[in-house]
Design a binder for these strands. Structure first.
Lengths: 334, 334
DNA sequence: CTGAAAGCGCTAACAT
DNA sequence: ATGTTAGCGCTTTCAG
């Protein structure tokens, strides 16, 4: 490996000067700097980040933990983070928690050994405890809040997004509106449920616990919940599903039951996707600025790392997209 | 940070012994080892991988470069690699080349500084040259072959998969079969085209250049190619599309043109996905063992790293899945 | 089986 | 503005 020592020799300076020329140009005479830069270029010098990290106790590396990289929403978050980090010369160490607090903990332990400068995490139910593994590490919570005091979070306005979706259904005349919602130990699920309740309340529609079914964020959960909800004697005329994966399951369930969307059932999902856009009928959704969430989380982290103080919490707006999966309440149904 | 020195003190041994106890247990007396392990446990010791990597010139880290993390196919590959690496205690540094040789090169440069033990790369058109950045690094090419002499590759049998798909269409009576295929500087695209030609040939159907349109692997390319192909005076009665993203575009194009699948047009895609399974009509596809590709690539890399010799090239079989997007040639059309 | 000592490549003090 | 020196945390000779 070509080391700084070789570069220094080729440029006729000491290793220390070579180091300064490359990373603190202002401390070095212009001519010297040019010689060093040229030598580095010619020899194909690449800094050994391990040595540098060891010396400076920090590695121009940030950690990213998402809960499911196969979920396009998370893949998009990850891309937003990565692209932004790369622009600033940071390397991203990405891990997958699969929603499992244990895996999250192991990821944090591994990450810790790499002396990262910061962390972006999509929290699981136990993130608050797990973060003890990396004490003092600048951290941004993305998409969800772990509940930590004073945490920095970058999320969408789930309450408003959810409220808007339900208001849309209400305005179409629906009154018996089912909801399939994530586990209540996840902040997004709580907030989306809250939006649902608020919308019902301000329309003067009574809230029924039996119309709200929980699921564990996966397609299979959405399917089962929808099957149960739609097999009731008085089945809902509309369905609001609290995340993208469960929405897929719910739509498949309606097909199994032979229900026509939107004639027999209106349905709204949370989070847009190509799938939502191209299925037929195209799905009405609460769309999130996913890539931007990742970008902003990363920008904030980089700011935090460079010592800036910033407000704890960022909320990005959602946007309701009306497509063909929602329609007026058919006559005869009330 | 808790270092080995603290652990050694707590256990009443030298740092050298503590190090051995943790990584070369057989060199240390059982009782000593237990004391060290307990101390490490209690103090929450996490090895500083930077220091270790610096010393051992290698960091229990492997690089992974995919061309598009937003493509579920690549996300699945990545998960296969990650899960496997994690089992063996390796950390994955993942990068995204976005099909751009330049980005790939930069990723390799960054990676190089991290002293990785190995690399798994989904090649771009310039990978052969770019790999000069990491000379001597054990490398597996995944999904595609860069063309390097003696490269280790893990791919599917694209020729057979493609042939099977086209044979299926031929057996349904189709003769004017269009193909939308990737750029010919990518090995998978060449191989899939070859399978198409072979199938036609063994059925005695003449090959027409004009029925084959290239695209750059993205949805938009697939759409444009399909629009052109399907606007011809004698339009194809069937379409075979050479990758998942372009298939989406092609299907959208058929909708724009108001064509009914499979009545007016049969269509087969390469690579299965949830989208293919749940669109209507469900798409007939050449299915690939995607997650396994990632797993196997990683296993091979780990073997390579530990000094095993292995054969250069692995080919996994594909599987044709017949769904509703392909049907018999309607009477009257020939 | 264990300890002492050196050094991986780099950068931050401290000199000059 | 540049050189000298020391040391980041760890593993690995080399002795004992």
């Amino acid at each position: 490996m070509i080391g700084l020592y070789e570069v220094a020799q080729a440029a006729g300076v000491s290793p220390a000067t070579a180091s300064r020329a490359l990373h603190r140009p202002e401390l070095v005479a212009l001519r010297t700097r040019e010689r060093v830069e040229q030598a580095a270029q010619q020899l194909g010098y690449r800094p050994n980040v391990l040595a540098r990290g060891l010396r400076t106790r920090g590695s121009r590396t940030i950690g990213l933990i998402v809960t499911d990289i196969l979920n396009p929403f998370h893949a998009t978050l990850a891309k937003g983070v990565q692209d932004t980090a790369e622009e600033s010369g940071y390397t991203v160490l990405m891990f997958n928690s699969d929603e499992q607090p244990d895996k999250e903990r192991r990821a944090l332990e591994t990450l810790h050994g790499h002396l990262p400068q910061g962390l972006i995490v999509v929290p699981t139910a136990q993130t608050q405890e797990n973060l003890a593994v990396v004490p003092g590490l600048p951290t941004i919570e993305l998409d969800r809040a772990s509940g930590r005091e004073g945490a920095h979070t970058v999320m969408v306005d789930n309450v408003a997004g959810s409220r808007e979706a339900v208001q849309h259904l209400l305005s179409l005349g629906h009154r018996r509106i089912g909801m399939i919602v994530g586990q209540q130990d996840i902040s997004t699920a709580r907030e989306r449920l809250q939006g649902y309740r608020e919308a019902l309340e301000s329309a003067g529609v009574e809230y029924h616990d039996s119309l709200v079914l929980p699921g564990n964020h996966r397609e299979a959960d959405g399917r089962l919940a929808a099957l149960r909800l739609l097999s009731r004697r008085e089945r809902p005329t509309a369905l609001f599903v609290g995340n993208n994966e469960m929405t897929v399951g719910a739509v498949l369930a309606t097909r199994e039951l032979g229900l026509d969307i939107p004639r027999d059932l209106s349905i709204v999902g949370f989070d847009d996707s190509r799938w939502a856009q191209t299925m037929s009928p195209a799905l009405s959704v609460v769309s999130q600025p996913t890539y931007e969430l990742g970008q902003i989380a990363c920008q904030h982290l980089l700011n935090l790392i460079s010592g800036q103080r910033l407000q704890g919490s960022v909320r990005l707006p959602t946007r309701f997209v009306h497509r063909q999966s929602t329609g007026p309440l058919p006559a005869g149904q009330e």
